[in-house]
Design a protein around this nucleic acid. Structure first.
Lengths: 142, 142
DNA sequence: AAAGATTGACTCATCAATCTTT
DNA sequence: AAAGATTGATGAGTCAATCTTT
């Protein structure tokens, strides 16, 4: 990285803008399922965990704050996709349990999300996909 | 792009996660100025436009919906960084006008944002910056 | 009627404070 | 006291409905 090293101007805003566009594209594709990306992500973690998780663990796996999960589960419960039960092992803890409708919806949403993802990234060559992975890893490591 | 063409697994979530991390990193650096990235962006458009803009035009330049600008300007007005005036040319229109404090804050925030951006992207080689620009352009074009 | 702005209702995220259970 | 969850306030974004002015 020599004296001439200069990142593209407005790389920051470009990255944020594209990420926003990509996110909203996926959201649109997801809309027919009645799911948002955050809701799908929560259902996905539950399915991957075998159907249920304490809210605190779910927050960890979603990399967000616990109060956010409380509200997200409120909405998913309102949709009938999740229920809350007591944790038999610890009276302080609540379990989020996915319902049958929740599993169906998850399968549908996952399919739509993967279609959208394939569509978006199919415009990149193998080489570009590889480059992107490297660059994102570098950016993530501060 | 041959038969073997496959994008990196979870490229979508990787992109969204990194964008979120980058955004929050910049937000942290910006915090001492009392500005958020959306507030800085609004002030920046005003400065670039010579100090004032009708709210509708500001919404266009921020690529967001008008009601969002209404609320953003509410908050900036509360901070004393912007004032609202009537548009002499059209009674329906309101002008967002940046204040002196707003200009100072903008200069400070811009400096902090640019420092953070430089820091983030300095880890990329010239070549990688170039690659990133190309890839983001492709992703943006659907 | 159409354009500009605002308001109200909602999603999603944060933080600080609180309540309950351990 | 500490851990798990919730509540309340706030920021940032969307959409639909409304008010005012053209």
């Amino acid at each position: 990285m020599g004296v001439s090293a200069r990142h593209a101007p407005a790389a920051l805003f470009s990255l944020l803008r594209v990420a926003g566009a990509v996110e909203s594209h996926v959201d649109v594709r997801l809309a027919p399922s009645g799911l948002s990306l955050p809701k799908l992500a929560a259902l996905d973690r539950l399915v991957k965990a075998g159907g249920q998780l304490p809210l605190g663990h779910l927050a960890e796996r979603l990399a967000c704050v616990k109060s956010n999960v409380t509200q997200l589960i409120d909405r998913l419960e309102g949709d009938g996709l999740v229920t809350r039960t007591h944790d038999p092992a610890d009276g302080r803890s609540r379990l989020a349990v996915i319902t049958d409708r929740g599993r169906e919806r998850h399968a549908e949403g996952l399919r739509l999300q993967q279609d959208a993802e394939r569509e978006l990234f199919s415009h990149l060559s193998d080489e570009e996909s590889q480059q992107l992975a490297v660059i994102l890893a570098k950016l993530e490591r501060r």
